[in-house]
């Protein structure tokens, strides 16, 4: 069973390039959110102040009175926009980590249920590739041991064609060898 997992750019479970990519996207996302907030406030406050002193005075007083609701509504729009885009970012980017973890969980549940386990492989670009590699290596080692135990027992069975006493002695020897090998598991 060969490891079909791909290593990440840093060799670690989650690549540095992947982390930097998410940070960059978060930066752009938050900057766009603030940009939208700026645009809303610019749109509300950039109306020309027309008229003489009294008119301007009343316009400024009126704007001051509405400042709190204007800021509240703009902040709500900003929060909604930024939250939605960040949530979308989390879903569309973090699935590169969440997907392999979910896949490993399913494979481990299958393994525990006693069903036949196939080699684990992740999608191209997925993170945490070392998990698949390590799991495949473990299952491979178990299967190698299983093959060796069975080969030893079948070898002993072949000697049963000689005579009964040799057969029994060889079978007991094989059993002792299997038990010795199994004793290495801790």
């Amino acid at each position: 069973m060969n490891g079909t997992a791909r290593t990440t750019d840093s060799g670690g479970p989650i690549g540095h390039r992947y982390i930097l990519g998410i940070l960059l996207r978060l930066l752009i996302n938050f900057a766009l959110g603030v940009g939208v907030l700026y645009a809303i406030l610019f749109f509300v406050l950039s109306k020309p102040l027309a008229g003489e002193y009294a008119a301007v005075y009343h316009q400024l007083r009126g704007l001051a009175a509405y400042m709190r609701p204007v800021v509240t509504v703009s902040v709500l729009a900003y929060a909604l926009l930024a939250s939605l885009s960040t949530a979308a970012l989390c879903v569309y980017i973090l699935h590169r980590v969440a997907g392999p973890l979910y896949r490993m969980e399913r494979v481990l549940e299958e393994f525990r249920s006693g069903a036949a386990t196939r080699p684990v492989s992740f999608r191209h670009g997925d993170q945490a590739g070392q998990l698949a590699e390590a799991f495949n290596t473990w299952v491979g080692a178990l299967r190698q041991d299983r093959g060796r135990f069975l080969a030893r027992m079948e070898e002993a069975e072949r000697l049963c064609l000689v005579d009964e006493a040799t057969c029994r002695a060889e079978m007991e020897k094989a059993l002792r060898q299997v038990a010795e090998e199994l004793a290495r598991y801790r």
């Binding site: 929060a79 879903v91 699935h95 980590v97 969440a98």
Partner: peptide, 21 residues
């Protein structure tokens, strides 16, 4: 399938939303 696990992706989205809020 992009939305794989609510615990990881949903949890992270909620944390970021809390920061934005």
């Amino acid at each position: 399938i992009r939305y794989v696990t609510p615990r990881l992706q949903g949890g992270a989205a909620l944390l970021f939303t809390a920061v934005i809020a």
